[in-house]
């Protein structure tokens, strides 16, 4: 399909996207890397010169670092576990014959379209508020003392909020994958005498493996970057300061750009390792 003329036209049409994205990626990235090797305090003297790897060392050695790693891992791990397990179950449920399937699907998917600040605020105030929240009403109804969710059980609360937002995504993708399963395969297994459970374990689950991997990778990338949910609820207090939030605080709140940039470089490296796995899968798909 290619003649010289069309190839030239194609290059010209691709160029703007490539050049702009390249600029968008390279310019800030280079700046971050440069800042990370500097002592740079915009409010307290500005650029104070090169310091080598000092920022990298200090970022890792600061008392906030390991707790941040820990809470990041807890949020990412907790949300992944909840959304993948519930997502598989929900996808199977939604794949069953029923009345009003379309409407149920819409109900399940809706949370994904709620902007993060709204969902965080609604959960924080209307559900988790220790005085007027619905959970407080519920606890009092059963004679229990209401819990101050976001301070006493901050981590589970955040995980709950974020899982609620991402469960639709996992469900939708897994449902799409289940529906692409050739029903003749299941019928063949049934003819071979496989029980419903073993059909699930030996046929459905392996078929879903790829979709699950994709869900895990994409969600991990997005979950590592969650920001608004914490910004609106705890502001990083009560052990919910993630790496992203820590870097944000270093850069914009305490205006220690050098230190924050070193953290940013760590985050970029981490994300790239994950992205590599994702791109393997997506790339394989391109060849088909």
């Amino acid at each position: 399909m290619a003649t010289k003329a069309s190839r030239t036209a194609a290059r010209l049409m691709l160029a703007p996207a490539v050049i702009l994205l390249l600029g968008w990626m390279m310019v800030p990235l280079t700046m971050t890397v440069i800042f990370s090797f500097k002592r740079y305090l915009p409010m307290r003297g500005g650029d104070l010169g090169w310091v080598g790897f000092e920022n990298y060392v200090r970022f890792v050695n600061s008392s906030a670092f390991w707790p941040a790693v820990q809470s990041t891992l807890m949020i990412v791990g907790g949300v992944l576990l909840i959304t993948v397990v519930l997502g598989v179950l929900l996808a199977i449920l939604l794949d069953q014959p029923m009345w009003g399937q379309g409407i149920v699907r819409i109900l399940v998917i809706a949370p994904f379209f709620v902007m993060p600040t709204v969902s965080a605020l609604v959960w924080k105030n209307m559900f988790m508020d220790p005085v007027n929240g619905l959970f407080a009403h519920l606890w009092r109804f059963f004679g229990a003392t209401p819990v101050s969710w976001l301070s006493e059980a901050s981590m589970p609360s955040i995980i709950l909020i974020v899982s609620w937002q991402w469960l639709p995504f996992a469900t939708l993708i897994l449902l799409t994958a289940i529906q692409s399963l050739d029903s003749e395969q299941l019928e063949a297994a049934e003819m071979d005498g496989a029980s419903p459970l073993s059909r699930f374990i030996y046929i459905t689950l392996p078929h879903l493996a790829r979709a699950i991997t994709i869900v895990v990778l994409i969600q991990t990338i997005f979950l590592l970057a969650i920001f608004a949910e914490i910004f609106v609820t705890t502001q990083g207090a009560f052990g919910t300061r993630t790496l992203t939030y820590l870097i944000f605080q270093r850069v914009l709140e305490s205006q220690n750009v050098g230190l924050g940039s070193a953290g940013g470089v760590y985050a970029i490296i981490l994300a790239n390792i994950l992205a590599l796995f994702l791109m393997r899968i997506v790339g394989k798909n391109l060849d088909r």
């Binding site: 069309s6 994205l21 990235l29 971050t32 590592l224 940039s261 940013g264 970029i268 790239n272 992205a275």
Partner: peptide
């Protein structure tokens, strides 16, 4: 419609820019 040898690499590279954590480039953009 006019794929070349590099098309796949370009697509994957574009995807990788999407993976860039925003917080990593917050200050430069600022």
């Amino acid at each position: 419609f006019v794929p070349s040898k590099r098309t796949k690499d370009i697509l994957l590279w574009m995807l990788s820019t999407k993976m860039l954590p925003a917080v990593g480039v917050l200050y430069p953009i600022y």
